[in-house]
Nucleic acid binder design. Structure first.
Length: 209
DNA sequence: AGCCAGGGTCTAA
DNA sequence: TTAGACCATGGC
């Protein structure tokens, strides 16, 4: 009998909870969601720390594209990311008063229309910046499911799996995603020691690299 | 010394 | 619609 999403969530909560939110500041979520694209979180943290209190919509929209590129260079793909952050910042400044009146789907479509914002970044922003329900499927999530023997053909199928036993709720979606990151960082990363792992019975880690 | 990291875009078939 | 090249830096 395979695990359900609800059972997975409950085990993660017991093992690692309570989870932390990405950031209380919505703009920090937008900014870091772009920086972290195919990039180690370590680099994002260093870059964010160096930017400090200048990481505001008004400052970022004020400076030149080249200056922004230099500020985020350590995160890689800096030309593309700087353009994306500029566009995202302009959108946020224009829209921030009306976002709460918009449907989740409407916000998602506008985010996806920004070049450099794909499915994952849009979902991260929806959940952690705007508290809208949406499942975030990233590399950690795919690895995690795969190690539990849960294989899918697409991210839509992965989302459907989560949604089948969990109601639409932004807090649950955000906490769940963060718990999977915590789990991946603590357990399933460089070492195969999984004795205390809440999924030791189901996990395929040793078989799957 | 490679390989990988919390992706996304563009192109070819 | 899907696979593969490409973008770029830092850490191990």
């Amino acid at each position: 009998m395979p695990l359900t999403a609800l059972e997975i969530y409950q085990r993660l909560l017991t093992a690692y909870g309570p989870p932390r939110w990405w950031s209380e500041d919505p703009y920090t979520v937008l900014f870091q969601a772009v920086l972290v694209q195919n990039t180690a979180w370590n680099n994002v943290e260093k870059t964010t720390a160096a930017i400090g209190s200048r990481m505001t919509p008004s400052y970022i929209s004020l400076i030149s594209l080249e200056k922004l590129e230099d500020m985020i260079r350590p995160c890689g793909f800096f030309k593309a990311k700087a353009r994306t952050i500029k566009a995202l910042t302009a959108w946020f400044e224009e829209r921030k008063e009306t976002i709460r009146t918009m449907s989740t789907e409407a916000i998602r479509k506008e985010l996806m229309d920004i070049k450099g914002i794909g499915e994952e970044s849009a979902d991260v922003i929806l959940v952690y910046a705007f508290h809208r329900s949406s499942f975030i499927i990233d590399a950690y999530t795919r690895r995690f499911l795969s190690r539990l023997g849960l294989d899918f053909r697409s991210d839509d199928e992965r989302k459907a799996f989560f949604r089948s036993t969990l109601r639409e709720n932004a807090e649950i979606d955000g906490f769940f995603h963060w718990l999977m990151l915590d789990h991946g960082k603590m357990r399933c990363r460089k070492t195969p020691e999984c004795q205390d792992c809440p999924f030791s019975d189901e996990c395929n880690y040793t078989k799957i690299r």
